[in-house]
Computed example of a mutant assay.
Amino acid sequence: MSTYRNGGLFLLLSFLWGTSFMAIKVGLEFMPPVLFAAFRYDLAAIGMLAYAAAATEYWRPRSRADWTVVGIGAILIIALYNAFLFVGQQGVTSGVAAILIAMNPVLATGFSRLLLPSERLGTVESVGLCLGFLGVGLVARPTATTLLAADLVAPGFVLLAAVAVALGSVLVQRVDSDLPTEGMVAWSTALGAVVLHAISIGLPSESVADVTVTTEAILTVIYLAVFASAVGYVIYFDLLDRLGAIEINLVSYTVPVFAAFSGWLVLSESVDALSALGFAVIFGGFVLLKRETLHERLGSVSPNRE
């Protein structure tokens, strides 16, 4: 029964996070991008803090190390990730954005090999990392004439979002903090919302006056905050405990399927063949980077195991 439960939750998480790309695209019609992201995390922070307080007694930062991981999460994993993503999604489809964000596990592995003393990047892992960037090239398809053109700016911002969250996820591992993940994410969400508001205020292109309050806009913010963020992270934590980090990383490769389908269904978007091939190449890079761990995990669930 737990296998079906885990599989069902995994698909639900993929659906929630995949359709969030479509919801972002819809909401951008009514709000400036960074301010839109800030509104999302204003509301999400309430749910996440409530969940953290209920899930663990140690949910408030108590030490300098605790506040350090919260700061890293707030700036890189919440604020910069979402600022880059929301700005970038103004110029790419939901499916393409999700494919580029799927570079996150590949980039995180690369950063961990670079920044964590115990990690090293071997020959096969280096090939995997190169495959990941080749996949990005197939999605963005830069040429000599379009290298600085506007049509590459949007995917560039989305890729920066993947870089920000990957770097943040590695840096938090370098800090010796006892704060549980639930507390770290909750406080990072709250402080990240503050940083997003500060970024929005500092951008001359953004203003509260540019917000168009409609039922569709309100529902979009609620969906992203409550379902994609709060409910999504509750499911994520549950699966992380049950499946481990490698299996839950695979959600990055199911999310684009739901992103592309919802974008096609709601917004009449499409993903071309080269973008789909790029996604497959990125996933191939991930498999090479994680081949040893994947082999161990697949062996541990072999039906022949006593």
Rank of each mutant, 00 (worst) to 15 (best):
P105Q: 05
I201H: 14
L13G: 02
L85K: 03
L116N: 00
A276H: 12
L13K: 02
M31Q: 13
R62E: 14
G135N: 03
L100Q: 07
L160A: 11
A154P: 09
E125P: 03
S300D: 12
V266R: 14
I218D: 09
V281N: 00
V96F: 12
E216L: 15
A259I: 06
S229W: 01
V165N: 09
S252P: 00
L294G: 06
F258D: 05
T3H: 15
I75D: 05
N104C: 10
T189R: 02
L243H: 08
D238I: 13
G168A: 07
G202E: 03
G27R: 07
S112H: 00
L298A: 09
S188D: 05
L121D: 02
Y4H: 15
P32T: 08
L171Y: 05
F279I: 04
D238K: 15
M103V: 01
S177Y: 12
T215V: 15
T254Y: 06
A44E: 02
F84E: 03
I201A: 15
N82I: 00
V70R: 06
Y51L: 05
E296N: 11
G110E: 02
G18P: 01
T3D: 15
F39N: 13
G110L: 01
V271R: 11
A161Y: 11
V231S: 00
L80W: 07
W67I: 08
E296H: 13
S270H: 15
